[in-house]
Amino acid sequence: MISVGVEWVNNFSAPCVNDDLVNRAECAEGFLDAMTARGFTSMFDWGDGNAWETDFRSNDNGGDALDWSDAVNFCYFADHGVNGGPGGQMDIGFTSQHEYCTGWSDSWRLGISLLRWFVLDTCDLVLDTDAATVSNWFGPMQGVHLLFGFVGEAYDDGGRGASFGSDAANGAVLSSAWLSDASSWWEGETAIAIAAGTTQDDATNRRDNETINWVYEDLPAETSWLAWKWYE
């Protein structure tokens, strides 16, 4: 049985300043509804001030990921994201200062426990698709199978969560479903799926074939390969 958790932020307030968004709840909860409609288990749905960066920060970095983002198999996060920190670190915004207004990817150990698939429905999962840029995710991906997001800026569209959730729940190949469902079809939006693996074949096989039925496969925290795909 797949467990699912979602977090989203539409409305920001001081001291955590950001422009508000409109469709983040629609995306995250659309995904959750589609998964639960198939009988999968909803573990949490935290929105706006209830979404906390500590839910993603690893416990050994002082966070609480083992009780939240890494206590579910599939986590969907919809919000602002920005990439550009040293070494390609990604930041995601929160409106609640618990403990910080920003979560940063260098503090994550995604998949150290139960997390298999993580959607960052934000801008800037990566800024480019070359090996040097995408390799920045070797650090945070510590057992998570697949990461889904966008290259550069994304659109605050509402429908992709429900579409992706429906396809994922019904056994679609996850990377292909994301590339299809995440496209808003407006120009200049590039969806990307990044898979981890112990070998090159393992990573490419996961990228090309993994469905939610692969939930029981364990990956070590230090995987040696990443494989990704995108349209351009």
């Binding site: 990573a203 995987t223 390969w225 990443l226 494989a227 795909k229 995108w230």
Partner: peptide
């Protein structure tokens, strides 16, 4: 449709 892969 592009694919890529990288070793750590």
């Amino acid at each position: 449709l592009h694919v890529n892969h990288a070793e750590r």
